[in-house]
């Protein structure tokens, strides 16, 4: 019902115009490119230093389905999921917040026929595009390094897009509540904790039970499980559960974000 009401309001052309604005900004700013490139290298450096470097000391990891893989193979899909998260969040937190609060970009857009939900959808679409650039490049690296079978790498790509949408939407919703730049320290800390403890560097099964239970309700855990399952060719029903979690997060984030844009800018 809610979906139907939203769908009736949304004009694809207007969402496209919001995306187009970001494409224009990308074209005309050198600094933006720099940010984009650095966002790709971060997970790659983790993969090399920890996955490959520390991995040489760790040895091999049992996957639970009888297969035993090198530590780099275990870590790489998690870095892939993290890069999808980072790419989307960079767009819907820093950039989104600046446009909403300081540049008054959305205020200008909302004086046109574009609606708050269309602003949110446009921003989210762009965040997914950005995140997909990261993950596509990262998947290529994984395939070249022999960390994933090429076909499974391809199968993981849509999953990383879903991860981008879910984190993008959640980040956008959170951004609408931030008061100033100091709040970003909290957000960065949260993001880094997720990055460290979401079954990224060690199987969650080895965590203390309490920590494991906490981790299993946080989003990056589900993202890592989904992406790792596909990248390593281990398709099972649990993946559908992880995907559903991310879909719900995306829907919720989008709904909150568009409500907040309406509330803050159209009062």
């Amino acid at each position: 019902m809610v979906t139907l009401m939203v769908a009736r309001q949304v004009s694809v052309g207007r969402v496209g115009a919001v995306v187009g604005r970001n494409v224009g900004a990308l074209r005309s700013g050198a600094s933006y490119w720099l940010v984009l490139v650095s966002g790709f290298f971060e997970p790659l450096l983790y993969l090399l230093s920890i996955g490959v470097g520390v991995g040489a000391l760790v040895g091999r990891i049992p996957l639970g389905d009888g297969r035993v893989v090198s530590y780099a193979v275990f870590v790489a899909p998690a870095m892939l999921a993290a890069s999808a998260m980072n790419g989307a969040l960079a767009e819907t937190t820093f950039n989104f917040f600046f446009k909403m609060k300081y540049a008054k970009t959305f205020e200008a857009i909302l004086a046109t026929p574009v609606r708050p939900i269309e602003v949110a959808l446009g921003e989210l679409t762009w965040a997914m595009v950005r995140s997909s650039f990261y993950t596509a490049a990262f998947l290529l690296v994984m395939a070249v390094m022999g960390l994933a079978e090429p076909w499974w790498a391809l199968a993981a790509l849509p999953a990383t897009m879903l991860v981008g949408v879910a984190f993008g939407a959640a980040g956008m919703a959170v951004s609408t509540f931030l008061r100033g730049w100091q709040d970003f320290d909290l957000m960065t800390a949260a993001q880094f904790s997720l990055f460290l403890f979401s079954g990224t560097f060690a199987p969650v099964g080895g965590y203390p039970p309490v920590l494991a239970a906490v981790v299993q309700v946080t989003p990056l855990y589900h993202a890592v499980e989904l992406v790792r399952g596909l990248a390593l060719g281990r398709v099972e029903w649990a993946l559908a559960g992880h995907a559903l979690y991310l879909v719900v997060l995306a829907g919720l984030g989008l709904w909150v974000a568009s409500r907040r844009i309406q509330r803050v800018l159209c009062s």
């Binding site: 604005r21 540049a103 008054k104 970009t105 205020e107 200008a108």
Partner: peptide, 11 residues
């Protein structure tokens, strides 16, 4: 609007 909200990222 009263305060310019031109897009600083664009020409």
């Amino acid at each position: 609007p009263q305060l310019d909200n031109l897009d600083p990222d664009l020409t």
